[in-house]
Simulated scan of single mutants.
Amino acid sequence: MPRPNLQDVVVQWVRRAIFTGQLKPGERINQDELAEKLELSRLPIREAMIALEREGLIRTVPRRGSFVWDFRRQDILDQYEVYAMVSELATQRAAINVSEEEIALLYRSVDEMAAHKDPAQRETANDQFHAIINRASRSPRLMWLLGLLASSVPSGFHESGWEIAARDHREIVEHLERRDGEAAAKAMREHIRHTGTHAVRFLSFPDDGDGDDTA
């Protein structure tokens, strides 16, 4: 079995901690504690901080350390909007290329999301759904870009929203089954926007209160 890239392990851990609210906007990342928690040396931690800064998730201040970027609600919504635009294009392509076997797999993932009560299983079904559609686009470049965008938006919202997501997913599959690329793409765009709106309601933003948001 190939050994995981240690830098990637750290990047994924910190990224998820940020987007699940475990690390708050503006919070300092203690690299010594992180190295101890992940049982790693300081080298992959430092390399991960550089990669995360390139992603715009953290900022490093000389002689002070690395801090979670001070995200605003609109920052998160903008990330989801870009994600929605690329997902829309991939879904249009998928409507042309998707196979009957992939349609069946999509319906299965929708049923699993609706049936499971465990949040982790629902999240797995959600990931499978989007991965199938992305592969069906038959565009390696779109798949790469969507993978990057998916890792740059919040995740882990277990408290609510799964029923709505399952409903959105079923609508998208039904359009794909009819080869209606325009309707499927529109449904995907609105689905991603719904997710973004849910994300900003879930996350805590110390700068701008609890006002309503629209995607």
Score class of each variant (00 low, 15 high):
E81I: 01
V14Y: 00
E33H: 05
P2E: 07
A183E: 07
L105T: 01
R135V: 13
E171C: 01
S137W: 14
A183F: 02
R141W: 15
T124F: 11
R93A: 14
P44M: 04
G147V: 13
G211I: 03
A48R: 02
H130P: 12
D210W: 06
L52D: 05
F129E: 12
L203M: 11
H175W: 03
N30D: 09
R179F: 06
T197G: 08
L106R: 08
G65N: 00
M49E: 04
G211K: 03
I172W: 08
D32K: 07
M143E: 15
Q74W: 00
I132Y: 07
E101S: 06
L145E: 15
L40A: 03
R193P: 00
A104N: 08
R193Q: 07
L105K: 11
K117W: 11
V61I: 11
A51D: 10
E36T: 05
I50C: 02
R122F: 08
D168R: 14
A84I: 02
A115G: 09
L43I: 13
H158S: 11
K37H: 04
G196V: 07
I58H: 00
I172L: 06
G211M: 02
L6S: 05
A131D: 14
S155D: 04
G209I: 02
L52T: 05
E81F: 03
Q128S: 12
M143I: 15
S151C: 06
E102P: 05
P2V: 12
K117M: 11
L23H: 00
I164L: 15
E33V: 03
K117S: 14
D212W: 06
E47H: 11
E81R: 13
H191T: 08
A184P: 01
K24A: 02
V9L: 09
R170G: 11
A94I: 07
R28D: 00
D180E: 09
M49L: 11
G181N: 04
A150E: 12
K186F: 06
Q7V: 12
R122N: 09
Y80M: 06
P140W: 12
S41K: 10
H191W: 08
S160R: 13
E88P: 01
T91V: 12
I103E: 05
R93K: 15
